[in-house]
Structure formats: C-alpha cells, structure tokens
C-alpha cells in the first residue's frame, strides 16, 4: 500500500537520512583516515591530519613492513591458526549442532544444558592456563588453535537454523532408509549455506582477531601472531614517545608511518572478505536467533 506523503514527511525523512548517514560516517571515518595516512607522505599528514584521501602517495612504510622477517612470520602464524581453526571449528559446530536439532532425541535436553552451562560458569583463567600447560600446548600454536574452536553460541545459532529447515525432504529420505549422516551431508548441509557462511565468518574473524590467548599462552617471538605484534609496535614506540626522548625527527616519522601501515596490514584481509560475506550473516543471524 502506498501511503500519501506530506511535506512534513519529506523533511522528517531527510533529517533521519542525514542523522543515520552521520552515524555511519563516524563509524567509517577512522578507517578512511588510517588508510589515507598510511599511503601518504608523512609531511602531508602534518599539513592535513584529518585527510581521508591519500596524497603524495608513498609506499615506504609498506615496503618496510613487508621486508621485516618478524612481521612476515607473524602473518604466517596468523594464517595458519585462522585456517586450521576455521576448518576444525566449522566441522565440530556442524556435527554437534545437527543431533542437537533433533528435539525428540533422548538426551538432547541434557547435552544442551551441559553446553549452555559453560556460558554461565567457567573455571577461570588459571585453571585453563594449567590445563593448557598440562596438555603440553603452552607456547605452541596449538594453544591458539584448539581452545575456542567450538563455542556454545555458534552451536545454538546453527542448531536453531537446522530446526527451522523444512522437514519434508528429510522425512522422505528417512523413509527410503537413508542414514542420518547421509541426510546431514546430502540434504542439510546444502540447505544451510547461509548459516555455514555466517559461522565460518564468525570463527575466522575470532581467530584472526584473537589476542587474549596469545598474550597468556605464547612466550617466544617466533610464535607471535599479528595482533601481538601490532600491539608491540604501537606500544613500544608509544612508550618511547611518552618518555619525551630525543627521537630524531626522521625516526619519529618512520615509527608513526609504520604503525599506520601495520594497522592496514592487519585489517586488510577482513576488509576484503567482509563485503562478500555480510549479505549472508544478516540472514543467518536473524534466522538463527529467532528462537535463541
């Protein structure tokens, strides 16, 4: 139904559009500024610190970043943990959520409670640290991959999506004598691509961004991740700056540009992947959360 609109409506519409646009601008601006500064000559930054468009383009900081062996090694570690963690996590989430989506299954309620309880209560930092230590995973990449693979939240999201799928095909297959594993593989998974893409994105982002586990479990520099390194780059030079030391002007310029370039290197993969996956996750989250 088309509603007749008055002049007041048009003004209100315009105001709302502007307000919402401004809020989105506030969210986007820091990223634009960081990208612009990272690719510009430092003198341009001092002239126009608020710039959003690169001027006097300069790749020096990036050349430095990509020639630094430590940074490359951190990149490699982060890619490894993200790839293995996402594959393993996705597999575990699917196989755990599928039986749990069968409400008639005996024991389903108990296992759900068993899983949900961990959202409410946990052993805390030190018992977990001690567990990782006992498993011999301390200061290995496994300590960053295995804990966090399977989360209650992702299981619930996927289970709710499975429950919302039409039952017809599944029942027909069941009558034909198909096994549950076959039904999952041939019928359920192909129908669940939106939620699988969503959860793959969630898991991959959480691995790429994970920082806490690395701070607690990793000691040697050779096993650092990008997030740890970025933190170090931002903090160390920052501390030096705060002490008001006699950094030569040039050196100061370099650290500033390197910080910006490292920031870009860390967020770039997410920025590239995000637009392709975001159309899925709104659908996935909405459908999955209905009964959540």
């Amino acid at each position: 139904m088309k509603l007749r609109r008055t002049n007041v409506d048009f003004i209100v519409d315009a105001i709302i559009a502007v307000v919402v646009g401004l809020i989105a601008w506030i969210m986007l601006y820091p990223f634009l500024n960081v990208v612009a500064v990272a690719f510009s000559d430092y003198s341009e930054y001092l002239k126009r610190p608020l710039m959003i468009w690169p001027r006097n383009i300069n790749f020096e900081a990036f050349e430095y970043v990509f020639s630094n062996p430590l940074i490359l090694n951190c990149y490699k570690n982060t890619v490894i943990i993200t790839a293995l963690g996402t594959i393993g996590g996705l597999f575990l989430t699917v196989v755990t959520a599928y039986p749990l989506s069968k409400r008639h299954l005996k024991g389903q309620k108990f296992v759900m409670m068993f899983i949900v309880f961990t959202m409410l209560f946990n052993g805390g930092l030190i018992p977990k640290f001690y567990l990782i230590k006992s498993l011999g995973m301390l200061d290995t990449l496994w300590a960053l991959i295995i804990p966090g693979m399977l989360t209650s939240f992702n299981i619930i999201l996927m289970k709710n999506f499975f429950e919302g799928l039409p039952k017809g095909l599944e029942e027909a297959a069941k009558i034909d004598g198909a096994k549950d594993i076959y039904i999952l593989y041939k019928i359920i998974i192909p129908l669940s691509m939106p939620i699988i893409a969503t959860i793959a994105l969630f898991i991959a982002v959480s691995y790429w961004n994970s920082f806490f586990n690395a701070v607690v479990y990793i000691r040697s520099t050779s096993k650092w991740t990008l997030q740890l390194l970025l933190r170090e780059i931002i903090m160390t030079s920052n501390a030096a700056l705060l002490q008001g030391t006699n950094f030569a002007e040039e050196k100061l310029i370099q650290t500033q540009s390197v910080k910006y370039a490292t920031l870009i290197v860390v967020i770039l993969p997410i920025l590239c992947l995000y637009p392709f996956l975001q159309k899925y996750f709104v659908k996935g989250v909405t459908l999955g959360a209905v009964k959540g």
Partner: peptide, 8 residues
C-alpha cells in the same frame, strides 16, 4: 575489527 586494531 579487533580491539588491538581499534585501541591502536
């Protein structure tokens, strides 16, 4: 975006 990047 990670907190490390945002705090950065």
């Amino acid at each position: 975006i990670s907190w490390v990047v945002i705090t950065g």
